[in-house]
Amino acid sequence: MRPQFGFAFALSRLLARLSGRKVCRAQWSGLEAYGVCLLVFGISCVSAGRVLPLVVRPGILRVALFAALPVILWGGFLLLYYVLSLVIHLFRRLGLYSAATNAPLQQLFFASLTTILSFFLLRSGSGWLQSLGILWLGLLALNLISIVVERLFDPA
């Protein structure tokens, strides 16, 4: 029988195991999905918000764009999923990729994009923006360490 708790990220699994729970690798945690979603989307929004004043003059248009930023970014993400799906399709034809779904590569892309944006936030000079970047980079580093720990102690 499968354990009651399932986490997608190695960090969550490791923390749960350290607290004495039996866990498995599954996407069952709303905290993980919603938390990372907020962080990735939040970092993208903040980064786009920082660029916006550089390309749009002050005025009604800038205010409107700021207000519509989450929706514009959502549209941008949809476009990115599509463009990436075409690239992955090309990879498949070349025999470079064979997973059942495109999600693993898409996940890698968006995680990398968020990491790059986090590095820019670190250089922003603003305390809270830097802390947002540190939060992402810290979680990423801890997750990578957890993957190594998991592989060493639980190869299955």
Partner: peptide, 18 residues
């Protein structure tokens, strides 16, 4: 079907919301 195979699971909540 496209979304299920392409949207990273951690971005699904935002996608569903919009």
């Amino acid at each position: 079907d496209f979304g299920v195979t392409n949207v990273p699971f951690y971005l699904v909540p935002m996608t569903v919301f919009f």
